[in-house]
Design a binder for these strands. Structure first.
Lengths: 181, 181
DNA sequence: CATTTAGTTCAAAAACTATTGAACCAAATG
DNA sequence: CATTTGGTTCAATAGTTTTTGAACTAAATG
């Protein structure tokens, strides 16, 4: 038997969503935090992933996550701004619903890489400030060139993904079938 | 109180390092912060970049950055751990010196990508928790497959860089010469 | 047009992270 | 072997970010 306290907490939430899903939601929270967003943003994203409804209402999010309206309001706005989720409205219903936004594969990647281009610029700038060439000057130029080249290379990669995608995913589905037999 | 402190800071530091370099160091501080490390880590990295000495002593870092010994000690340890800088010791000299560690181009990239593999796993796990297939199930599988595929694709990319590097950097040097004429 | 419902805003509180500084240890020097 | 120097550790503080909650607007409903 579990302790009373935990039971109470869970009772409130178990009526709405099962334990596994709740712990999954916490996991996405931690992941998003590591990716530089807030824990709450990750929780909302995770909730929308495991929810078996197509869209989830503001109110439902608030109930499941047990957070304040202010927090949900601010964080959904953030998630919409970066393109992770989108709001859905229905005529004859004043509520706002949310769903996962089907971003193109590679969009998140490209967004993250933008910091590397900045990294490259900063390296150049530092190199220019040095009064003399030295041991690391060449290395700095190479690092900078690599990250500049990377932008185009990754664009090509994303195009190649579109080409190979179907084959890769078919094989994956087959493998999955096999392992089930 | 604040104003006085900043004035003092500049006076003290100008004797050691010029204004441009100091402001560069602050810039790398901000960049590293955006990359998820501390401002102090970025400052130390920036200082090592623009320093015209091959190695820089603990003490010198402390003086230029006007920070506590504890902060320098902790942050250099961090930077060493992630491979950005390395400590150098000399026999007959009990001081510790530091220099930029010449990481292979692509190492930082690979490290950053590791979070995406985790992202991919988390997406899979979420998909498995759903009670029924729905609108986003296919999309989730695609996103997950993309980030799994990406690991290998980026390894290939890094190998290709090694091949094209010299040509790209030669051209760059030529372009630079031209623009100077 | 008063009431209810849905969501927003923002100041304050809570939680978390980075930095300091003083006490400390360990190696080199006199 | 006492002293000086170079660095580490960690509790306390400063600074930053996240979350709350109460007051508010705006739209739908009776």
């Amino acid at each position: 038997m579990k302790t009373v306290r935990i039971l109470c907490l869970n009772k409130q939430q178990n009526g709405i969503m099962n334990k596994e899903k709740l712990s999954y939601i916490e996991e996405t929270g931690i992941l998003f935090e590591q990716l530089g967003m807030t824990r709450m943003a990750g929780r909302i994203f995770g909730l929308l992933i495991v929810s078996d409804q197509n869209t989830v209402s503001f109110n439902h999010i608030q109930e499941v996550l047990n957070a304040s309206k202010g927090s949900i309001s601010g964080t959904t706005k953030q998630l919409i701004a970066v393109g992770f989720i989108e709001p859905v409205s229905l005529s004859g219903d004043r509520k706002t619903y949310f769903r996962i936004s089907k971003m193109r594969a590679g969009t998140i990647l490209k967004a993250r890489l933008s910091l590397f281009y900045k990294f490259s610029d900063v390296i150049d700038k530092g190199n220019a400030l040095k009064e003399k060439e030295d041991e690391i000057s060449d290395w700095l130029r190479e690092i900078s060139a690599f990250y500049k080249w990377l932008g185009g290379a990754v664009d090509e990669l994303i195009i190649r993904w579109e080409v190979v995608k179907d084959t890769i995913m078919e094989n994956q589905a087959k493998d999955h079938e096999k392992s089930e037999k």
